[in-house]
Simulated scan of single mutants.
Amino acid sequence: MKRYEVLKAVVILQAVCMIALTGMVMVKVWPLPGLRGNEQGEQTSPPAPTGSEGSGQKAVATVGGQPITGAELTSELYRQYGDEVLRVMMLRRALELESKATGLRISQEELDREIASVAEGYGDEEAFYSMMREQLGLSKEQIQEEYRYRLLLEHITIKDITVADHEVDRYMQDHPEQFEPQLQFHLRWIVTNTREQAESVLAKLMDGESFAAMARLYSQDEFTAEDGGDLGMIDADDPFYDGEVLAAAAGMSVAEIAGPIELTEQGYAIIELAGRKSTSNLASDRLFEQARKQLALERAKPLNVMEDELLKRYDAMIMK
């Protein structure tokens, strides 16, 4: 899973936690769009939840002496995330029911392998959990639970898909890039608006200034400046990063600094290669089963279709 997919998943998870704390009060049955309609066949959306009288009017912040109440915060969270978060919560309940009905479970070993695979893009698991905690306020337990549900959905989706051994062999031959070690760079960068600024920063670095300190002072990249310009671990062929930067990193030694590099969209960059590694091959039997699962997922119905079927199977309804 790419980093942007992880972020999307955990932002939704964070919204689940935030809205759950507001204490939603819902009293009438409201059918899920696409599952059931109301008596007139119309689709409606659940209203923002309201807290107990008085408690929602307590100020949680002030700006210029004007309060922002708990009720306003709850309403805004519900407006932005309500439909999607409620669907996630209902899907989790449906998945648990299906797990009990089918006997499918996610072992701790499988969960650990999945987390380790995701964490490769962040350096290691400690760095991955630290980033999620610092930037999104999510605990290790919350992250693991999110991935447990994802794996469970995949297992439920492919449980009736049969993939023969010879088909797996052919799939691995046709997609060698998915099963070979991959080169990764651990990069830091400082982004400036002009070449002159970049050359000035580079001169300071050559005089012994700290790369992290220079990034905090001069980098125009707001997403990495506070972290000393740290981009984490990046695949050598990652299409979401500037090709010139990756090409330069390929010819660098660890701890070497290079630049200025003209960027496609952001000006100029000074980069430091903090480390490199090649993802190691898994044991052959694990690679084989990984390929079997991937092929099964390609043949199975899309995961979002499986989600809709589970909600229908367990009469999912929203209370209004």
Rank of each mutant, 00 (worst) to 15 (best):
A296M: 03
G82A: 06
V85I: 02
Y147A: 00
A15N: 10
E180P: 02
E76W: 10
V245N: 06
G103H: 07
E72H: 13
E244M: 12
L311N: 05
Q40G: 07
G23I: 07
M90Y: 11
L97S: 07
V168I: 15
I318S: 04
P46H: 07
D230T: 00
G232Y: 00
V6W: 14
Q14Y: 14
R92A: 11
E154S: 11
G23Q: 05
P176G: 01
G34S: 03
E309C: 08
D237Y: 05
E226Q: 14
L111D: 00
N38V: 14
L104H: 03
A255C: 05
V29S: 14
G64F: 14
E256M: 10
G34R: 06
G64Y: 12
I261A: 01
Q80N: 07
P46G: 06
M319R: 11
V11I: 15
L297N: 00
I270A: 03
D227N: 10
P260F: 10
L32Y: 15
L111V: 01
A94P: 08
D165N: 15
R286Q: 13
I143W: 11
E84D: 09
L152W: 08
E42M: 15
H155N: 01
E5V: 10
M233A: 15
P239G: 02
D237H: 08
F288N: 02
M319C: 08
R150T: 04
L95N: 04
Y241R: 11
A116Y: 06
G267I: 06
E154Y: 08
K28V: 12
A20I: 01
L295V: 05
R36V: 05
N38A: 08
E298W: 04
G121F: 11
E167Q: 15
G103K: 04
L153K: 05
R286P: 00
Q14E: 06
R36Y: 09
V11W: 08
L153M: 11
L32E: 14
E96I: 12
I68G: 00
G208P: 14
P33M: 04
G121V: 03
V60I: 15
G232W: 02
S253L: 08
C17T: 10
D83E: 03
S280N: 05
M319Q: 11
Y78A: 01
R170Y: 05
N38L: 15
L136S: 00
L7F: 13
D221C: 10
K140I: 03
A269M: 07
A236G: 05
T44A: 12
A248I: 03
V245Q: 03
T44C: 09
L152P: 12
M90H: 12
V29G: 09
R3W: 07
L111R: 00
L202P: 08
D237G: 05
V168E: 03
E39I: 14
Q182H: 12
R36A: 12
